[in-house]
């Protein structure tokens, strides 16, 4: 099936291919929704992760809190935000980290009206393939 939505810069559309790739990663992330699981994860992250058969790249991205890498490996933002919440990071600060702008500069951009659509529609506008 043609993916017309792939030509959007700086964006992952969470389709079935990404969902398959990220399944165990995302199931791990959502497990942190519950306090009892957050307690167990915080006590011993590596042992907790052993219950989820994700790839070693995915596992490393979790342990390193590499937020963009998690998305590149099939994670979805609504799942990875549960890992961020475990770390006390809300959606806005997580976006600050993912954009590489940092929390303060990102917040300032949002208060000033956000990222404009002009120049941000197509990958070619970002010099991407």
């Amino acid at each position: 099936m043609e993916k017309d939505y792939e030509d959007i810069p700086g964006t992952f559309v969470f389709d079935a291919d990404r969902s398959r790739e990220g399944y165990h990663l995302n199931q791990f992330c959502i497990s942190l929704r519950l306090q009892a699981n957050r307690d167990r994860f915080q006590a011993d992250e590596k042992t907790y992760l052993d219950a989820y058969p994700m790839t070693s790249d995915q596992r490393d991205a979790v342990l390193n809190r590499d937020w963009n890498r998690l998305l590149e490996l099939g994670g979805n933002i609504y799942y990875t935000s549960k890992l961020a919440a475990n770390d006390g990071i809300n959606f806005q600060n997580l976006a600050g980290l993912m954009t590489g702008m940092g929390v303060e500069e990102y917040r300032k951009m949002m208060v000033e009206g956000g990222r404009p659509i002009e120049g941000n529609r197509y990958k070619s506008e970002w010099g991407e393939e």
Partner: peptide, 9 residues
């Protein structure tokens, strides 16, 4: 909310 284009309005 996600990745490098986050913040689009």
């Amino acid at each position: 909310l996600q990745y490098k284009r986050a913040g689009l309005i």
